[in-house]
Design a binder for these strands. Structure first.
Length: 590
DNA sequence: CAGCAGGGGGCGC
DNA sequence: CGCCCCCTGCTGA
């Protein structure tokens, strides 16, 4: 303690810095207070915006631009090892790296603009002195890092001190030039903006929601423009460069890690084209009977067949390209579609690296949060969980009113359906903890348990149950809780129903069939494999894409039997009839 | 109106 | 059993 002349006492914490670093390391180890998740090569790394933005202007800018409480940032073309090393570097200020790995590490650092590795590092407390020393860059160059600004060839690092194992210790003080490749910041397409398909497959990215502006860095140059890059997943086309192949492999690995929907593995991104008469692609070449017209109610079909200007054969799979000759607001021409289908094949066989882009880039962890009401294990009552807090309503109206209050209070609301509770005390709901949900998601995506859990067998194997419970994990899904009470409560509430043995490992919702669960999982993974050829809309379900494509045309297959009203969706017509012609409906039914 | 998501029929392996 | 597909209900704009 130093007594200053003015009578003020200067209290100095001697071990402040070391304590800070120590605490920081602990927080990282325990994954406490994590508010951002980095996804890389199928792995998830909880991190802290504060640390990332401190160490990287790239992250800083990214976080400034996104309002997400907990964005998930998918880092493409960066190896997991490199990311782990960079995280250690950022949290600890140093990292040990094998010399042979230094090159890729530096590349990754450049992409992420990591201070001290790729971007000039300056002492914030001593700017004037620095400028004197290095007026051009304002950065301090460590004497040990003999890295020429004009040549970042890692072989130059051989002059640096290397320990016996060939591991280099990279210090914060080591600086590279600012003259590095700037990470390409990808802009999210307006979901309503029609795409130019000639580039759409290459440039389409994840169906992120509007508030998720953080984007994955794209260190590698964009895939080649020779049209080969759209080749089927993982295949290295003649025109592909090594990075593209790497990216494909990485994406494939990621997909394997996902292990959620086998249907997506082989054909990660599916963009339906205009020649896809029934919108179902090759699988449905003989899908004539499936056209919606056949399924119309009698009255509708009668009206429909007599409808003006609309060819019923449209639904028979014979002339459905007419669909795309309908006036459309899209600038996506039929020629574009056919060209894509015939030539570059960018739509159907999008490369896996493209699919990697379609993965939930910077998707809010909010979207991973729990969904839907569940059932009270004791009373059987339906419980509606607030999306913003831990409030639980037993009445839907009450639930809606409660949430409306949040909205009125200006609670940030994602445009997507699922939300991260803003103040979620752990243990209220299995999925209200960000850490827990990430653990769970991580387990879903990575753990070999995921396949077994997806099998959904709920045969009550006591031994299995007990063993799993003892280990803190649910034997039927990937739910984890250190609290045995919470865990057993989860098991009771989520897996007691024999009718719905397939439980979502993230939100615990039960499903009667495995494939329904698989589709449901797309909510959590952000997968939207079905892309509209007219715009950037993507859907997790093909049937929903069909409906969407209809919206591009003026075709409204469902006609009201009582008036001239027509609807594009059957349900909408139903609503119309019940609303506008209730008396007629009643008389028709009696 | 359009989008999302769950349920379930049906088919092929 | 896995998958494709359609149907359906709900919801927000």
């Amino acid at each position: 303690m130093v007594k200053m002349s003015s009578g003020l006492l200067s209290l100095k914490w001697n071990h402040h810095r070391s304590t800070f670093l120590h605490v920081l390391a602990n927080i990282r180890r325990k994954e406490s207070y994590s508010d951002v998740t980095l996804a890389c090569a199928g792995k998830f790394y909880p991190a802290h915006k504060l640390v990332l933005s401190t160490c990287s202007e790239y992250f800083e800018e990214m976080f400034e631009r996104t309002q997400c409480k907990h964005p998930v940032i998918v880092l493409k073309d960066i190896g997991a090892d490199d990311l782990e090393a960079l995280l250690s570097y950022m949290y600890d200020g140093e990292v040990n790296v094998l010399q042979e790995n230094l090159s890729s590490l530096i590349k990754a650092a450049e992409c992420l603009k990591i201070k001290g590795l790729a971007v000039a590092d300056s002492d914030p407390t001593d700017r004037t002195k620095e400028k004197k020393l290095h007026p051009s860059s304002g950065s301090s160059i460590n004497a040990n890092s003999n890295i020429n600004n004009s040549n970042r060839d890692v072989h130059r690092n051989e002059k640096r001190p290397v320990n016996g194992s060939g591991i280099k210790r990279t210090n914060v003080n080591s600086s590279f030039s600012e003259d590095v490749a700037q990470p390409i910041k990808r802009r999210r397409p307006d979901s309503r903006t029609p795409l130019n398909t000639s580039a759409s497959s290459e440039e389409q990215e994840a169906p992120v929601t509007s508030n998720e502006s953080a984007a994955a860095p794209e260190p590698a140059s964009p895939v080649g423009e020779d049209g080969n890059n759209g080749g089927s997943g993982g295949e290295s086309q003649p025109g592909d460069d090594a990075k593209s192949a790497e990216a494909s492999e990485e994406a494939n690995n990621f997909l394997q890690d996902l292990n959620v929907d086998a249907g997506v593995k082989a054909e990660p991104v599916e963009v339906l084209d205009a020649d896809d008469l029934t919108f179902d692609g090759r699988e449905d070449e003989d899908a004539g009977p499936d056209h919606p017209g056949e399924d119309l109610p009698d009255f509708t079909e009668e009206k429909f067949s007599g409808g003006e200007g609309e060819d019923p054969s449209l639904w028979g799979g014979t002339d459905e390209t007419d669909l795309f000759s309908q006036p459309s607001t899209s600038n996506f021409g039929e020629d574009d579609v056919k060209k894509d289908a015939a030539g570059g094949d960018k739509s159907g066989n999008t490369s896996s690296s493209d699919f990697a882009r379609s993965l939930p880039v910077a998707r809010s962890a909010a979207d991973i949060a729990y969904a839907s009401p569940d059932t009270d294990a004791v009373t059987g009552a339906i419980r509606y969980h607030c999306m913003h807090c831990s409030h639980i309503s037993l009445d839907h109206e009450q639930h809606k009113q409660h949430e409306a209050q949040h909205r009125a209070q200006g609670v940030h609301t994602e445009t997507y359906t699922y939300h991260q509770p803003q103040s979620a005390p752990y243990g209220i709901h299995p999925c209200e903890s960000t850490d827990l949900e990430l653990q769970m998601l991580s387990r879903v995506l990575q753990s070999p348990l995921s396949s077994s859990s997806m099998d959904g067998s709920v045969t009550d194997t006591v031994a299995l149950t007990n063993a799993a419970l003892r280990s803190g994990g649910c034997p039927y899904c990937n739910f984890i809780s250190p609290d045995p009470v919470v865990l057993s409560s989860h098991v009771r509430s989520s897996h007691s129903s024999a009718n719905k043995p397939y439980s979502c490992p993230v939100c615990s919702r039960g499903f009667s069939r495995k494939n329904n669960l698989q589709v449901h999982m797309r909510i959590h993974t952000g997968e939207k494999p079905f892309g509209c050829p007219h715009c950037s809309y993507r859907s997790s379900q093909k049937s929903n894409l069909k409906l969407h494509i209809l919206s591009h045309s003026e075709i409204k297959p469902y006609a009201c039997p009582y008036c001239d009203h027509r609807s594009s969706q059957k349900i909408n017509l139903k609503m119309h009839v019940y609303k506008k012609h209730p008396a007629l409906v009643q008389s028709a039914t009696t």
